[in-house]
Write a protein that binds this DNA or RNA. Structure first.
Lengths: 185, 185
DNA sequence: CCGCTCATGTAACTGGTTACATGATTTA
DNA sequence: TAAATCATGTAACCAGTTACATGAGCGG
C-alpha cells in the first residue's frame, strides 16, 4: 500500500536502481557491465553482486521486469516502478544522507598514517610509486572526459570532474609529504 | 615457520595492527576508541568489528597479548610480533597495493550521477545543503589540524591535509555543478 | 551509591567478494 | 567452427554492521 516504509537501499542497490532508470529499460547484464567498466573500483560489478541486488529490488517492488527480445536474443528488460522512482529520489535527498557527506574513505591516506613505520628509503619509494600511479589516473580521467565531452550531461561531467579533483587532491597530499620529508633531514 | 604465507589483512585489520604498533602496547579498547573517534566515518569502531579483528590478528601470530594492570584495573596489552611488523610493512608496500591506488569511492559523487532525476529546485536544494555540510567539514579538519599543529609527525599531518584537500575537491565538484546549472537555463 | 568510562565480548544479520556453472547468439 | 560476448544465475565465504550483554573501577 502507499506509505509502506521501504528499507533503505544499499549504495549498490541504489546505483543499480538509478542505472535502470537512466539507461532503462535494460537488462541486468547491461547494468552489470556499466558498474564493472566504471573508472571507480568501488564495486566489482560481479554477477554475484548485481543479480541478487536486482532480485531484492524486484522483491521490494522498486523495479519490474518483462521478457523482451533483442533480435533473436531473449532477455529480461528492467524498469523502475513509481515506487522505485520515489525510493531513489528519497535516497538522493534532500535531505542529503549524512553518511554521504562525511569525509570519504581513502586507502592511500590510511597508509600514510603508518608510513613512518617503514625505513626512510622505502618511504621515498612508496611515495614515488604512488605519485606515478596517481598521475596516470589523472591522465585516464582527463582522457575519459575529453572522449565524451560533446553530448555529456552536466551531471556526468560533474561526476568525472569530481573524480579528477579528488585525484589531484591525492597527488597534492603525496607531494606535500614527499617535500616535507626531503626538507626535514 | 619463516616463509609461511600469511593471508592478506583486511583494511581494518591492517589499521588495527598499525595502531597497536604505533600506540602500543595498548588495549583493544584503546584501538577501538581511536578508530571510533577518527574524523573518517569509514568504520564504526564497534566492538563487533574490532574485537574479532584483534582475535584474528592474534590467531595469525601478528600480535601477542599479555595481562597488565593500569592501577587496579586489569586488561590485555597488545603488541605486534616480528611477524606482525613484517606483515604490516608488506601491506604498506612498496609495491603499493593496486586497490589502494584506484580512484577512491565517494558516495556524494555517486549521487551526482543521478541528480538529474530530481526536479530542478530539488537539485539546487541538494547542492546547497551538500555545500554547506562540506564547508563545515573543512572547518572541522582545519581546527583539528591547528589543534595538534605542534608535535605532530609529518605523516599524521599529511593525512589530515589529505583529508582537507579531498574535502576541498568535493566542494569544487559541487560548486562547479551548481554554476553549470545556473548558467545553463 | 549512581552513573560514566574502561574493558571485553557474542549473536543475528547483511551485502558484498570470488569462483563456478550453463547456455544461447554473434562475430571473426 | 571456434572464440567472444550476451545473459542469468548459484554457492561458499567473509568481514563488516547493529544490538545486546556483562562486569569492574572510578569520580562526583
Amino acid at each position: 500500500m502507499a506509505g509502506t516504509i521501504t528499507k533503505r537501499p544499499s549504495e549498490l542497490e541504489a546505483v543499480v536502481l538509478g542505472l535502470i532508470w537512466t539507461e532503462g529499460p535494460c537488462t541486468a547484464y547491461a547494468v552489470r557491465r556499466i558498474v564493472k567498466d566504471s573508472l571507480s573500483t568501488q564495486w566489482s560489478g560481479s554477477a554475484g553482486a548485481v543479480y541478487p541486488a536486482v532480485a531484492r529490488l524486484e522483491e521490494r517492488g522498486l523495479i519490474r521486469s518483462r521478457a523482451q527480445a533483442t533480435g533473436k536474443r531473449q532477455s529480461l528488460a528492467l524498469e523502475p516502478t513509481a515506487k522505485g522512482k520515489r525510493a531513489l529520489a528519497s535516497w538522493l535527498g534532500p535531505p542529503v544522507d549524512a553518511g554521504a557527506l562525511g569525509i570519504p574513505a581513502d586507502p592511500l591516506r590510511v597508509r600514510l598514517r603508518f608510513l613512518e613505520l617503514l625505513a626512510p628509503e622505502r618511504q621515498a619509494e612508496f611515495l614515488s610509486q604512488a605519485i606515478t600511479a596517481i598521475k596516470a589516473d589523472t591522465s585516464r580521467i582527463k582522457l575519459d572526459l575529453r572522449k565524451r565531452a560533446r553530448d555529456e550531461s552536466p551531471f556526468e561531467k560533474a561526476m568525472a570532474r569530481g573524480a579528477l579533483h579528488a585525484t589531484r587532491a591525492r597527488l597534492r597530499m603525496l607531494a606535500e609529504l614527499r617535500d616535507a620529508l626531503v626538507t626535514e633531514n
